[in-house]
Computed example of a mutant assay.
Amino acid sequence: MGNPHEGQRLMPWRLGYVALDVDDLDAAVHWWTTFAMLEVSERADDTVYLRGGTDHHWIVLHRSDEPGLRRMAFEVCEPGDLDRYRNRLAGEGVAVTGHDGDWTGEAIRFRDPSGYEVELFTGMANMGIVPTKPWINPQAMLHAVVAVSDLDVSFDFYHRVLGFLESDRVMGKTIFLRAANQYHHSLVIGAGRGTPPLLDHIAFHFEHIDDLMRVRQNFIEENEPFSRDLLRHPTSGSMGFYGRSVPEPTVVEFCIDHGKITDPDHRPRAMAPARWASNVWLPPVGLNA
């Protein structure tokens, strides 16, 4: 189908990686390799890079006394986009720093209105082969969900300045934003989820339902608790479950069937913040009264 960059529109291509600070690096590596099915691609004294596909990394773990989200990074569609973003961010009064990139091409970093560090980079290093150690590998890293201090201000920044497109929203609570790879959402910003900085969850996509069920069964076999068990979202159509990760309170969503939006005339839905906004399988209120 070609590159859905829409020709002239400046927008990121995809969520490239997420960097996390953890106080126990060994415990964090154990969780992400045992339950999230990632493989170590590079390790230094205080940093571990983890991959799920042929990308050098999806998750970067940093040893720190203050656990939490360090950075979320998005790959741009083409190298020239970095200069376009530099100019656009400068016009908004946003301070931008250049970076050589950690196993990526050239990168820039800046802060969003809620204080999150955001990186835009030109290209992820490729490992050449799929991971060999985990017994089932995620197909893609889909999205990150973060709490924001002001939903309208954050939406303006990510939509107008960075170029993400709105896919849907839950009124007054959550906005789903897609990048050029067309998955229903690569970033979700939410109000009322907690005080920033707070990474609510990261999502990994699997190819088949059997893959998803194997990952879920691994949680059961190891007595690892779920955050939320099987459900289907009305927005993306994805089915999956959530597991508590390291560092807390972040969780990881494991899913299949996450839809794409290919219609250039797509009209975002404004969904009521009601019972079915997150799980269409819930029964009607009072059904068994």
Rank of each mutant, 00 (worst) to 15 (best):
G2W: 10
G2R: 15
H5T: 12
R9M: 05
L10C: 11
W13M: 14
G16K: 06
L20E: 07
D21N: 15
D21M: 12
D24Y: 13
D24F: 08
A28S: 12
H30F: 07
T34D: 06
A36S: 14
E42P: 00
A44N: 02
R63F: 01
R71N: 10
A73C: 11
E75M: 12
C77E: 08
G91S: 06
G91F: 03
G91C: 07
V96P: 02
G105M: 03
A107V: 01
A107T: 02
G115L: 07
E117Q: 12
E117S: 07
F121E: 02
G128K: 09
I129K: 15
P138H: 09
Q139K: 14
D150R: 04
Y158C: 07
R160P: 00
L162Q: 05
L165N: 15
S167P: 10
D168H: 01
V170N: 06
G172W: 11
T174A: 15
I175T: 13
L177A: 08
N181K: 02
Y183T: 02
H184R: 13
L187M: 01
I189L: 08
G192I: 08
P196T: 00
P197T: 06
P197Q: 04
L198P: 09
L199H: 01
D210K: 14
D211E: 10
N223C: 01
F226G: 11
F226H: 10
R228L: 05
P234Q: 04
S238N: 14
G243M: 08
V246I: 05
P249D: 11
D257Q: 01
D263P: 10
P273M: 10
N288Q: 12
